[in-house]
Design a protein around this nucleic acid. Sequence first.
RNA 1: GGCGAUGUAGCUCAGAUGGCUAGAGCGGGCGUUUCAUACGCGCUAGGUCGCAGGUUCGAUUCCUGCCAUCGCCA
Length: 687
Amino acid sequence: MRPFYVTTPIYYVNDKPHIGHAYSTVAADVLARYAKLRGRPTRFLTGTDEHGQKIEQRAKELGKEPQAFVDEMSPPFAQAFRELGCDFDDYIRTTEPRHEAKVQELWKILAEKGDIYLGEYEGWYSVADEAFITETELKALDEVTRSKVQLVKEPSYFFKLSDYTDKLLAFYEQNPTFVQPEGRFNEVKAFVKEGLRDLSVSRTSFTWGIPVPGDDAHVMFVWFDALTNYMSALGGPAKAGEAALYDRFWPSAANGAEVVHIVGKDILRFHAVFWPAFLLAAGLQPPSQVFAHGWLTINGEKMSKRYGNFIPPGPLVEAFGADVVRYYLMREVGFGQDGDFAHKQVFARYHGELGNGLGNLLQRIVASILKNEFGGEVPAPNAIGDEERELVAVAEKAAAAAAQHLDLVGPHRALDAIFELVAAANRYVDRTAPWALAKAGDKERLATVCYHVLESLRWLSVMLAPFLPEKTRALREQLGLPPISPTEALDQWPKAGEFGGLPAGTKTAPGAPLFPRFDPKDEAAILEKLGANKPAEPATKAEKKSKEKKVDEKKPEATEAKAVAPTETKGAAKAEAPSTIVFDDFVKVDLRVGLILEAEAVPKSDKLVRCQIDLGEEKPRQILAGIRLHYAPEALVGKRVIVVANLAPRKMMGLESHGMILAASDTEHGLSVLRLEKDIAPGTRVS
RNA sequence: GGCGAUGUAGCUCAGAUGGCUAGAGCGGGCGUUUCAUACGCGCUAGGUCGCAGGUUCGAUUCCUGCCAUCGCCA
């Protein structure tokens, strides 16, 4: 069987783990567990990306050594993934010697082949993105990011990417599923077709990176470093016989291995263009496939630092259990598309599919009929009829379809197919009415019915194992079956003709419901605890967008208002304001206590003052206010003011403002900023 | 601006090389069962398949234009 090697991106340790990281990793875990179940030699890698200027700076801000900083930041990722039931085979950190050595080796190979040369680079470098950016991009940046863009002119090594335009296009041609989904592949091709420029692959402006071999003044471009993790974790590049894992799992003519990189759509280019180019240059085989999944929004809102709505997986796991979170992530969103993580939907899927569908199926047969009529022992089936044939047909079809979808990296479709069997089994129970058979004393027929339901459950326990490792274990335990132990070269996926593998005489062990129902109170409590109690949610994408648009359209008017600045409103904003508003409307305006940390006059403007205001968020916000004529900037520092925190961002004098300071004015007194009499903590909601 | 894509039931999405009554899940409504986690099962939802033209015996499915949305253009 073809070896299978699946990877997640390595996560940049500047962030803490959130649901986005979890999403990639769970997807990879599902694919790995599936491959293992099918008996394929399988390896699943995840890890952390720990070099780069951003890390260096962050560590410095915290007064730490970079290594100490990343040593602190990396383990929570591994921890979070384990809590989610992710069973990775290796966890690589780019600061490990095993990685650094291999990255340097790859570099040397490219240098020796003449694909790396020393030149000079001049351009805008964004620390936040760890990449040089274009003028266009520069203009589009928000202020926080732009403040970290530098015009850099420095000696730099370049990779001769320009030589690989045609080679990459030819490679894409030969590998028509190299990038998935297809739409993304088209973008990649379009990008390459425009012609590639050489790629700067080293920096001299900071030191937190892997040194360029033979030139200590340079450290490697983080992406060169990071991408190589997929190979270094296997011990490659290496000569045949030097690294067993590499020989086995990195694709070559000899092993026929399949490598799938799961990535977010934002980092597709690095994986679909640069990485294969490096490998082609080194004479190595590129990965088999790069699968770009979409973004998750949270209850309809974009995740971002600004909104502070990154949700860590921990509390979700605590509330729902790892399997339920995994299930939701894999079920709700079409893999490859953007999707929404909506807490309410989690309950809906939990109750509707897992509880009522699957859990109840187990309960209604094992804990009652079987226990009462057969002493909990699996009976041997007797003559079967159309109902049984139909059920078996559905089971076989579901198994085949689910396998096919998983082979093509479509976990949501696989689950869809699998749950066809759940529905069919429930239907089967209704039609055959085992309770009536019991009453009538028809044990023979009853045995057949019970057997078919139990065998269906057994199939489900296998097919759902990649998604619900814990719950399927519990399910099997109740069925009296041992946990599945994946075995290389043994394909354990259920197949046509195999219905009936459950041995008669198996002692079942009825237990607690697999997916106990949350009563509405618990539900509310959980939502409350997770901070997911949104008053009103935007009804549809379209509606939401049009609402946001209205806000934009209103911007010009907003300028007339005293204080300045605009907003990140999500929705709200009625076209015409009624004379009175309900409370719900009021709370749409997010008023917060802000502590002015810095204030300075905006050059070339006689009104604007640029403030950095602490709103209790991770970072202070930049807010512009037209109050210079009334306040000296330095006099504002340390003042507590009222800020509209959910106003859409707006640019003024080339600077972006992320909120608005409230003030009032009249002709007699001039302008007065609203201030607090007491030292209420920054970020406190005003109501 | 260039390139690409999308626009189908309240929601999330399938689908048709053009042709009988356009589908699924969820939600809603109605009914029903009682083995089971107030669970299950059955029925139901009258959606101009974005808008306007064109090709055709016939288009929601092909073509053109328009509108809207989205993605990519280091």
